[in-house]
Computed example of a mutant assay.
Amino acid sequence: MISICIATYNGEKYLEEQLASILPQMTASDELIISDDGSKDETMTIINRYAAQDERIKFFKGPGKGVIANFEFAINQSQGDFIFLADQDDVWLPEKVQTTLSFFASNPKIDLVISDLVIVDEQLQVIEPSYFEYRKVALGFLHNIVKNKYIGAGMAFRGSLKSRILPIPAKVPMHDMWIGLIAAYKNKSALIPQTLTLYRRHNNNASEINTKASFFQQLKWRCAISYVLFKRIFFNS
C-alpha cells in the first residue's frame, strides 16, 4: 500500500491535471491524502468532486499554518508502507510510482529516494530537462545542510521513516530538507536518475528553485536546522 500526500492551497489552476496524472497509478488499496490549508478559490470544489467519485481520496482540513505544517499534517494521516510527496501544481509521468517501488524493492536498505524532475513552465514546456543536472544534486548529510538539494516533488520514503521525521520542527526552512537530512544521516537515501515528474514553475509556487534569501538568513536557517537535527538524532535515536 502506498500513501500519496498533497498539501493544497489555492491550487485550482493546476490541481486537476495533477490528480489526473496520479490516480491512474494507484491500486485499489492505495490512498491519496489531501490536506487543504484554507483555500479561497475553487480548490475545494475540485477536491470534493474527485473525492465523491474515488474512495481512495481522503480529505482533511489542514492546520492553516503554512506549507510545512500542512505537509506534516498530511504525512501524519498516512498509513502506507511507502509515502510519496506531491505538489499540487506538478504532473507525474505515468511510470513514476512503479519505477519508485521497483527501486525500493531492489534496495531494501534505502529509506528515501528522490527521482529526477523536468523543470517546466506553466504550459509544461521544458525549461530544464534535468533538475539534478541544473541544481547539481548530490547526496550527503553535511553537503545538504550547507546547500540543500532535497526536493519534495521528487521524494518518496518508507512509512517506517515517519517516526523519525515527525514532528517536523517549526524552525526548519522546508519540510523536504528536514526529511531528506533525517534519511541522509544514516546513508539511507538514494537518487533515481529517471525524470519522473514535470516540475511546474510559475508565479505562485510555494518554494523557490534558487533561494532569494540573504546569506545571513541562510546561515540562520542552517544553524537552526543543525540544532534541531542534533537534538532529534542524538536524543531520540
Rank of each mutant, 00 (worst) to 15 (best):
N148G: 13
V172N: 06
Y14V: 00
A213G: 00
E72V: 01
I47S: 09
L93N: 05
I127R: 15
F215A: 15
Y199I: 05
E208D: 10
P63C: 09
G140E: 08
L181I: 03
Q98R: 15
D121T: 05
G140H: 11
I2R: 05
I165L: 10
L181D: 07
T100P: 07
S163T: 13
E72Y: 03
F60T: 00
I145A: 03
S214L: 06
K109H: 13
E12P: 04
E55W: 04
I151K: 03
I33C: 10
M44H: 11
G152E: 08
N107K: 13
L198Q: 15
S226Q: 07
S106Y: 00
G38L: 10
E72T: 10
W92G: 01
G64K: 11
A183C: 09
N203M: 07
K188C: 08
E208H: 10
Y199N: 15
V91L: 12
R164S: 11
D89N: 14
L85I: 09
Y9P: 00
D30A: 09
S102V: 01
R158E: 04
A170W: 05
K149T: 14
T197V: 15
A86L: 05
I225T: 08
D81S: 13
R158M: 06
I233D: 01
L161N: 07
G11P: 04
Q77K: 15
P63T: 10
S102C: 05
S3N: 07
T100G: 02
N76T: 13
S35A: 14
P167A: 10
Y134G: 00
P193H: 11
L191P: 09
S160C: 11
I225H: 01
A190G: 08
S102D: 15
K65Y: 03
K58C: 12
A28C: 03
T197L: 05
S35D: 04
A183F: 04
I22M: 12
D37I: 06
K171R: 11
F234I: 08
